[in-house]
Design a protein around this nucleic acid. Structure first.
Lengths: 338, 338
DNA sequence: CTGAAAGCGCTAACAA
DNA sequence: TTGTTAGCGCTTTCAG
């Protein structure tokens, strides 16, 4: 409640001096510093963030933009967020999660005027309208994800290409030759063109062909029911499929049930691998699912760093960071031993 | 990028007039209004949120305070958030998710200075230090949850008492007399005294006694392993238990596996009911879990309304809103028919 | 119905 | 080393 001026009066110094000790902007004698801090304590002084922002054009607040579409706030997303927030905090910034229209329409209202120093974009689509908006607004930003051509944009992303290759390597080493891929159909939704899906599909199709194997793609609707239906459809398309990649956590349970219902045992008859999922997800199932674990925390940290480097001018090079998911094989022994 | 002054110049009016048309604060002739809006469009004028906030002491931004502890960002939490954000948006506010220290230490920095008009507190503990901080800071706030004595505080919460009674009614009607309760042990963590756990335990103990039944409580560590261990411990404590309430989504899978491992079939030998969980959670399992579904969206909306009413002065009565979870019985038929 | 002007609380030259 | 002062961009009386 107390203003800087009041603190200055109380300490018998000028308002500038108070500002200097508050921000450490300039050297002030220990003696005056002491008087000032004492006055601040006595008056319970709190620096007014808004006034400071207006005068200095920086708030030390960054925003993680999250599209207000459906409820796709996955555990991995949550990891991003928490890790990025922690990192930001370590570097003297605050990170808030900001739900915004996926089209980027309500973006300018908030972002212009300097409420936030920069933003991190998540759930990026191949042609994401928000990057144009942000660019025009001249707001520093970093992507978690990549647009179709992001060579000139700062980003941090899962290396889906490598992730899929690694997945197929792993399964091929187990002897599999007939693959399936299950993911969500976002066409017709605001999230159409969701980059991870696009890259995973493309890589899957190409790599399976390169290997001289078969690959079938089916789309799953939400929930357990969607998973069961997907299993049915997959077996219709290729009843000899022996390995399937799922990229939709909430229907993996249904997928398993659907496979069982069709007389396939997991993993004896069909191997199932959960893609770009959280490590916790695999444990939710019985039998446990092998998982390509998304590096959520690492990416969150990197994204925060990338943006803050940009803001602080710490680094000038364009960050282009890709990290693949890591294979985590389900240890069925752990289940058996219990 | 354009300032109000520039717009005023362009339109040949004073800056005050521009402000009036921008905010609709005062009547302005259609003719001048037209000139002003034209100028705004031409100059791509965007009202500077920070300057406005400094001058008017309101930002129309509210924050949902989320404790930076562990990764307890459940699907239900996510529902709260999304629903509250939507409602806020409908009422002309923006809602951001703000990770803050559970002790409330870094709270005053941000909240004082009027960066946000008010806050919603979630993950409330029985004696939550943050309410004292907020009260002293004179920031309008609303709780999602309740402290021990929240009679004088505005809140919106799950009616855990009714939820537990309903759960036991349901199970008792099925003939069960020996109950178990599985939840997380938060003692020693910053979230110790987490109100939902406290109330659920208290009600469970009392109600089971009232009914002349037995009730055993065991604590589960995280993940699937925690759930399996909990199952084992529960059966040690009461090997004749026939109905168990779980209040920890990420270990319910393990719980099922643990029960199976001990030779109990679900639901034939033991009924399992997931408490205060999202509807999606029950579907993750096989067999599907019956669930007391948390009214996440409804509470989010109510919380946003409660806070905004307070801010806008729409309503003066202290909101005290309680809503129980709703029973959603797993239809095992759906599984069988697939 | 519109304009003039005094701030909101702080930052950052520039002086002293 | 500390003080003076001119803004930051907008809101809001109070006049006219």
């Amino acid at each position: 409640m107390a203003t800087m001026q009041q603190v200055a009066d109380r300490a018998g110094v000028s308002i500038a001096t108070v500002s200097f000790v508050v921000n450490g902007t300039k050297y002030v004698t220990p003696k005056t510093t002491a008087r000032v801090t004492a006055a601040m304590r006595e008056l319970k002084f709190r620096n007014n963030v808004v006034a400071r922002a207006l005068a200095s054009r920086r708030t030390r607040i960054i925003a993680l933009l999250f599209p207000t579409t459906g409820n796709r706030f996955s555990p991995t997303t949550s990891e991003f967020f928490m890790a990025a927030a922690e990192r930001a905090s370590e570097r003297g910034y605050h990170l808030v999660l900001w739900p915004v229209d996926p089209a980027g329409d309500d973006l300018d209202d908030l972002v212009s005027g300097g409420l936030v120093d920069g933003v991190i974009l998540m759930e990026v689509r191949m042609d994401d309208p928000r990057v144009a908006v942000l660019t025009e607004l001249q707001v520093p930003f970093t992507l978690i994800g990549r647009t179709r051509d992001s060579s000139a944009l700062p980003y941090v992303d899962i290396d889906f290409e490598t992730t899929i290759e690694d997945s197929l390597d792993h399964l091929a080493a187990l002897g599999h030759r007939r693959f399936g891929l299950v993911l969500e159909d976002l066409d017709g939704t605001p999230m159409a063109g969701y980059a991870p899906h696009q890259r995973v599909q493309d890589t899957f199709v190409r790599s399976v062909a390169d290997r001289g194997c078969t690959g079938s793609i089916v789309f799953a609707d939400g929930g357990s029911d969607g998973g069961r239906a997907a299993a049915r459809r997959l077996l219709e398309v290729d009843s000899d499929v022996t390995a399937v990649l799922v990229m939709k956590d909430d229907s993996s349970a249904g997928l398993l049930v659907g496979l069982y219902a069709a007389g396939r045992r997991v993993p004896e008859d069909v191997s199932v691998l959960s893609i770009a999922s959280s490590s916790a997800n695999g444990d939710q199932h019985y039998p446990r699912l092998s998982t390509m674990v998304a590096p959520g925390r690492e990416l969150g940290v990197r994204a925060a760093d990338a943006l803050i480097d940009q803001l602080d001018g710490t680094s000038v090079e364009l960050p282009h960071f890709l990290l693949p998911c890591e294979l985590r094989v389900a240890e069925s022994t752990a289940v058996a031993s219990s």
